[in-house]
Design a protein around this nucleic acid. Structure first.
Lengths: 194, 194
DNA sequence: CAGATATCTGGACACTATCAAGATAGCTAC
DNA sequence: GTAGCTATCTTGATAGTGTCCAGATATCTG
C-alpha cells in the first residue's frame, strides 16, 4: 500500500485528507473550508471523503481532536520544562496562549460549538479535555496542597479560564501576543494588592 | 412609511433584516446563517438585503456590533449596581459571563475572526472595544490607584482575559454557567495563598 | 406632474454538501 | 490461481447557497 501516487486506491486517504484539511484550515479558517477543495488537494474525487468521514462536520471534528491533543502536549512540555509551583502554572498558561497564537484556526476549531456540540464532546475529545483539567489540577495541587476537591475544581476553572481568555483575545487581535504573560502577572499583583 | 405590511418598499428593511438575522443566529449560529433565509423571514426577495448590506459578512458585522454594545451595557449595569472596588470588578466579570451564556451565538459573533478581522475592527466596533477596556481600566484604578499606565493596561488584559475565558468555556459547555464566579474567587484565593 | 433615485424582484452563475449508482481494486476462501 | 466479496473511488444529480445583473416599482425632488 503506497502512501501516494495516482493509484485508484489511495491507501492512506483519510490521513491525506486530514493533512489537506489542516493546511486549508490554516489558510482560510473553518467556515470557508470546503470538502471539495480538500478532496481536490488530495487529488481525489469530490465524493471520496465520504468513504472516510460521515460528513464535513465529522472531518472537522477529527481535526479539532488533533489540535486539542497538540494543545495538551504543548502544556505538558511547558510544565515539565518549568520548576514546580506557581511558575509552572504560569508557564502552562503561556504555552496555551502560544499554541493559540501559532494555530489560531485550529485552536478556534477545538472550541467551536458548531463542531464539538456543547456538553457532548466526542469519545476522543472527552478524555483529552479531562486530561487537560487533570494536568491543571495537579499543578494547582502543587501550589496549594491543602485545597479540597470542590475548591481545587474551582481553581482549575479560574486558571483555565484565564489562559483560555487571554488566548482568545490574542487570536481575536485584541491583545498583542506578548501581552499574555504580563496580563497574568498584573492580575496576580492586583489581587495580592502588590 | 409604515414599518411593516406587504408594500413594495418595506420602509425599515435594514432593521427588520437585522432582527430576523438575530433570531436566526440564536437558533442555529452564524456558520449556518443564510442570507436567503434572513430575507425569507423578512418577507422579501433573496436579493433585497444587498441594498442594505454589502454582503453577508457586512450584515454579520452589524449584528456583532449590536451584541458588543449590549455586552458593554451589561457590564456597565453590573458596575453601577455594585459597590466600588474589587467586588465591582467581580460583578462585571459575572455580568460578562452571564451575557455570553444568555446569548452564546451573539457573543461568539463579536469575537469571530471571520467577521471582525483580527487587528482591523470596524469603525463602530473599535470605540466599543475601547470603551470596554476603559471601563475595566477605571475599576482597576479603583482597586489600586497607584498603578502606572503600563501596569494598569496589563491588569486590564488579565481581568478581561479571565472574564472572557470563563465566558467562552461556559459557552463551549466545558464549565457550568454557575462555575464562573467560584472560578474567579478560587483563582484569587490561590494567588493570595488563601 | 415628470424625471431621478432608492428600493425591490426575478433570473443566472458558480460554488457547496450530500445522495445514489456504477466502476475498480485488493482481500478471502476455495 | 481464481471467483466472489467488500472497501474504495468515480461520475452524475439534487437542492441550497452567495453574489451579479437587468428590469420593475415606488418614493422623492424639482
Amino acid at each position: 500500500m503506497s502512501t501516494s501516487g495516482d493509484r485508484y486506491h489511495h491507501g492512506a486517504l483519510a490521513a491525506a485528507l486530514l493533512e489537506a484539511a489542516d493546511a486549508l484550515l490554516g489558510e482560510s479558517g473553518a467556515a470557508t473550508l470546503s470538502l471539495r477543495e480538500v478532496a481536490r488537494r488530495a487529488g481525489v474525487s469530490h465524493n471520496a471523503p465520504y468513504h472516510h468521514f460521515a460528513d464535513r462536520q465529522a472531518l472537522l471534528k477529527r481535526l479539532s481532536e488533533r489540535h486539542m491533543s497538540a494543545l495538551l502536549d504543548a502544556q505538558r512540555a511547558a510544565a515539565s520544562a518549568s520548576p514546580p509551583g506557581a511558575s509552572r502554572l504560569r508557564a502552562m498558561a503561556v504555552a496555551y496562549v502560544d499554541y493559540a497564537a501559532d494555530h489560531p484556526q485550529g485552536f478556534a476549531l477545538v472550541f467551536d460549538p458548531e463542531v464539538c456540540v456543547p456538553g457532548a464532546p466526542s469519545e476522543t475529545m472527552a478524555p483529552l479535555i479531562r486530561a487537560n483539567e487533570e494536568l491543571i489540577a495537579d499543578v494547582v495541587g502543587e501550589v496549594d496542597p491543602r485545597l479540597d476537591e470542590p475548591a481545587r475544581a474551582a481553581a482549575v476553572a479560574g486558571v483555565w479560564g484565564l489562559a483560555h481568555g487571554l488566548a482568545n483575545l490574542v487570536v481575536a487581535g485584541h491583545l498583542p501576543r506578548d501581552a499574555a504573560a504580563p496580563g497574568v502577572d498584573a492580575l496576580v499583583a492586583l489581587v495580592r494588592g502588590d
